[in-house]
């Protein structure tokens, strides 16, 4: 029994956008990290989404099955980072340059705003679905 229809799809979208926000936070936090786990400068991560067919006993009827969204992969952006001359840095190479992470704060802020707006849009859908359910219950009044 699912009273608020379509809420599973919205919930999966909220999950996906939440992951995207987490990855943006990770990118911004590591914007100056010159030594990550593998010893190289941090490489920014990119989230991709894919559709997921919801398996519900009652809902799957032919092509009308609801398709949710899930995180397909978290890939590494391999573009080379900026080289900064800083001989004092312990991570500097022999020629005195340090390879900075390839994180562009402007891109990350745009991604952050997009993910936040997408999250808000899905929240509105959830709110509307609940309102519709409550309005439907008012038929009998």
């Amino acid at each position: 029994m699912n009273l608020i229809t379509g809420i599973d799809v919205t919930s999966s979208a909220l999950n996906a956008q939440r992951t995207r926000l987490d990855i943006v936070a990770q990118n911004i936090a590591n914007a100056q990290t010159t030594r990550s786990v593998d010893g190289r400068p941090y490489q920014r991560k990119v989230v991709t989404f894919e559709t997921e067919l919801l398996r519900q006993s009652g809902a799957v009827r032919g092509s009308a099955a609801p398709t949710a969204v899930r995180v397909a992969s978290i890939q590494t952006d391999n573009t080379p980072g900026q080289k900064v001359y800083d001989p004092q840095n312990p991570d500097a190479a022999a020629d005195g340059t340090v390879t900075m992470p390839n994180v562009n704060l402007a891109y990350e802020m745009v991604d952050l705003i997009t993910a936040t707006r997408a999250y808000e849009a899905n929240l509105s859908v959830a709110k509307n679905a609940r309102q519709i359910a409550m309005k439907t219950l008012e038929i009998g009044k």
Binding site: M1, N2, L3, I4, I7, T10, S11, L14, N15, R18, L123, A126, R130, A133, M134, L137
Partner: peptide, 18 residues
């Protein structure tokens, strides 16, 4: 996640109203 908790609470509320 936080939203799963709130959504399940709303679902319970709607079921109770029904």
């Amino acid at each position: 996640q936080l939203h799963q908790s709130v959504i399940s609470m709303q679902e319970a509320s709607v079921a109770f109203s029904l």
